[in-house]
Design a protein around this nucleic acid. Structure first.
Lengths: 341, 341
DNA sequence: AAAGTTCGGTTGTACGTATAACTGCGGAGG
DNA sequence: CCTCCGCAGTTATACGTACAACCGAACTTT
């Protein structure tokens, strides 16, 4: 009944090489500080190659008490193209350290999440990465604390776990500064949503924008700041109204790329050319929008890959702090902003 | 030295419940056909809950010879937004069957791929899903054959492994039929690339288009069929030339969404409205393009989720055929096609 | 009453590995 | 010549689980 599909074991190798299983283990693991003659080592290695021996990780994990496995839990994997990036980077980082990544997506289902964590823990994962698909604050399941864990793209409400998030404030500020540096003094800002949403992407980007304007000694014109409802149509309307004024802004900063796209459409409808008549800056660097708009959209990239890397690196480093790490959003320069004067 | 972080074992539970370890195992696994009294079962379950016992999968896998793990290997995960969808669906399907998914992305690196497969095999995975990020034919590493494997979004050159691919031909044909059903008789077709690329997306979609036109008894006008070089600009130029003719087509079918987007831009530049003056149909259903164009692009969706599901399902079903399964591409109706007459 | 037959468990072992503890041997040191 | 020691391994064991084989008591069956 016991279907034993698996290949040769160390015992088979040992027999083939005329040594004991322990010696095989020594050769395979202890590469340096070992006490086995070069000749024996060769024989063992030859037998390994000849038989196509592969270590049985289950046995190894059982013996060693850990698995060289990292768990990855995400709330909504597919819906966002970012997901792949963060997963890839996390996996790459884990692999670089000899770990594989176990992935579970929960679709935000709390109950499934608990079971998923249970399942990961029972597989002796060495750590868990909990990734949120959009930046927010959240409560994490208690079981996460049983093993080193880190939260990506979100912060825990109680600050009980280390987290890695995009630096929205610095991003908003850098984007604005970029426009200011190019001579823009009247800059329209179209936010994604109202501040009540409490989302860092909404609140902090706007704060960054305002502070940059203020720090540059420019007057803050509240009528240039618009807030939407997350809808593309609303963003379009806002952009249209901004550009239709007697003294329109010379640049529009959309708090995300979709909002910026609204500005493109408004400009097109009004016969304005980008960047000649009006400059546009986005945020998020959604490849399919930003890179394919004509002209290409200059925007701030969310550091998904970097978050994935840092998160796993933090797990594997073994240091247990709970600091929130803010990662810089790099500016991606394309062709939608021009220098004035 | 041996850092034993792990929690209680069956022995601990057994002691707490005043039974033997075997009884705990019986209670936990054999739920039905077991021979343990209701009262004992209760005691064991209580002890399990009280101690927070969790099975050690490493030990279980070692004992049982399999891991309830599925390996997922992809060539370019992040670069494409499709990746997330296929991964999510595959993982969901695996989870539904009590399996977790181990993911590795190789970036197309052949050597890394071999090592990844080795690593998966040494972890006793019950099967491997090998996903290509765009539809093509490829050679798979021989080691894949050591365990049930299935190829997604690609076919093996030697047909040695089961595969699941999108039905490009049927998709091209269905899209065209959709236009014909709405009264279009002069339909422009802008292919992504030349047929020399040998890619199914290029070859079969065009074949589907031609066959649909032919089957409808319409005359095939070769001058309405254009081929690009994968570049957005070229697609735009083709669309422009098509629409600039004395008798322009009433509809343009772009072999992918980016090509269709070129048609949007050409139409806009010529002052033509979609769908009033010209209808446009795409292929791929790239959310960020198709859903956000104005008007929304009617297009054929690639069945990524379905491929992920089917692939894993095939693995878990245990049946070992090597057939290539073609999955239907569903039509996503938005607003870029109008009925004539 | 002797001989099964359930019932409700227990004992023992194997899965493949890593490693602590041991061993046989040849040479160096006294 | 005896002792000691380093070398190059070997032997034995534990990790936590599943399950085959066993076992005692109570209950039938003949």
């Amino acid at each position: 009944m016991t279907r034993r599909r698996s290949g040769p074991t160390m015992h088979d190798v040992a027999r083939a090489a005329g040594v004991s299983q322990a010696t095989v283990s020594l050769v395979l693991n202890d590469a340096e500080g070992s006490r086995v003659s070069a000749e024996t080592r060769e024989r063992v290695l030859a037998a390994v190659a000849h038989l196509g021996y592969r270590v049985n990780s289950a046995a190894k994990s059982l013996r060693e008490g850990h698995s060289r496995l990292i768990g990855f839990i995400g709330d909504i994997v597919a819906s966002t193209p970012f997901a792949g990036e963060i997963i890839e980077a996390a996996q790459d980082r884990a692999w670089a350290d000899g770990h594989l990544m176990l992935i579970v997506n929960t679709g935000g289902d709390r109950d499934l999440e608990e079971r998923a964590i249970d399942s990961l823990l029972s597989r002796q994962v060495d750590g868990i990465v909990y990734a949120a698909m959009y930046h927010r604050r959240l409560k994490v399941p208690a079981a996460l604390r049983e093993v080193p864990s880190v939260v990506l793209n979100a912060e825990t409400e109680d600050g009980s776990l280390p987290a890695v998030v995009p630096d929205e404030y610095a991003g908003g500020r850098a984007a604005t500064q970029y426009l200011i540096d190019r001579g823009h003094e009247r800059i329209g800002f179209i936010n994604i949503n109202t501040l009540e949403s409490r989302l860092p992407a909404v609140v902090d980007r706007e704060r960054g924008f305002l502070d940059a304007v203020d720090a540059a000694g420019l007057k803050i014109d509240r009528t240039l700041v618009k807030r939407g409802d997350g809808d593309a149509e609303t963003a379009y309307q806002h952009a249209r109204r901004l550009l239709d004024r007697k003294r329109p802004p010379t640049a529009i900063f959309g708090a995300n790329d979709r909002t910026a796209w609204g500005a493109y459409q408004a400009a097109a409808d009004l016969g304005l050319r980008i960047p000649d008549d009006v400059s546009v800056m986005g945020f998020d660097n959604q490849e399919l929008i930003a890179a394919h708009l004509r002209p290409g959209l200059t925007t701030m990239a969310l550091p998904f890959a970097e978050m994935g890397r840092q998160g796993v690196a933090r797990l594997l480093s073994g240091q247990r702090g709970t600091e929130v790490e803010a990662v810089t959003c790099p500016l991606v320069e394309r062709a939608s902003v021009r220098s004035l004067g």
